[in-house]
């Protein structure tokens, strides 16, 4: 049985193969520490979104399904960083809470239970040793588990047939000293 970390490395190989073969989602999302990037068509498009994502929209992108995988990269060697994911959970009367578990390269690094349909920032520290070195870059596979994702059409909340859990708007990797939410 493969250890978890080895499995992650193998997964990376598959991801890189897919990127090399001209996959629609492309390769890892290059993040410059300190810069807020925007999900959606205007900035990130589908970059780094390996699986479990809807089509990028204007200023945001939804997950589509109970697990979404995002591949991010920073210049190596990475420092201690704070991952900030800004967005809004899909919460309705029939889906009163969204639970989000975040794994980074197989390590569980965060859990949130969101009950308000309002702007929220998921923040989690990323230690340097959690990253995998690939040439001059350090890469991390972020797996977001959203088991409460729901299709609005199934719960009489609209015609959308996607399985929605969280609407992602911004991503930022910041030096860990600054833990405040930056985006509006």
């Amino acid at each position: 049985m493969l250890r978890e970390r080895e499995r992650v490395v193998l997964d990376f190989s598959r991801v890189q193969d897919r990127a090399a073969s001209g996959g629609r989602r492309g390769g890892a999302l290059d993040c410059e520490p300190g810069v807020v990037r925007l999900f959606g068509v205007a900035d990130l498009g589908a970059r780094g979104q390996m699986s479990g994502w809807g089509e990028p929209e204007d200023g945001h992108v939804w997950n589509d399904g109970p697990q979404a995988t995002l591949l991010i990269a920073v210049p190596a060697p990475p420092s201690r960083l704070l991952l900030l994911l800004g967005g809004e959970p899909y919460v309705s009367r029939l889906r009163p809470a969204q639970e989000v578990t975040l794994f980074g390269n197989g390590l569980r690094i965060g859990f949130w239970r969101l009950t308000q349909r309002a702007g929220a920032t998921l923040s989690a520290p990323l230690e340097p040793e959690w990253w995998l070195r690939r040439g001059g870059r350090a890469v991390m596979r972020l797996d977001l588990h959203l088991p409460n994702s729901a299709r609005p059409i199934d719960i009489a909340d609209g015609p959308d047939g996607r399985e929605l859990g969280f609407c992602f708007r911004t991503i930022c990797l910041r030096p860990l000293a600054d833990e405040a939410d930056m985006t509006a």
């Binding site: 300190g34 925007l38 959606g40 205007a42 200023g59 985006t183």
Partner: peptide, 11 residues
Amino acid sequence: TVAVSMVAGLF
């Protein structure tokens, strides 16, 4: 002193 940066991509 740079405090924060962002991609100007909001509509």
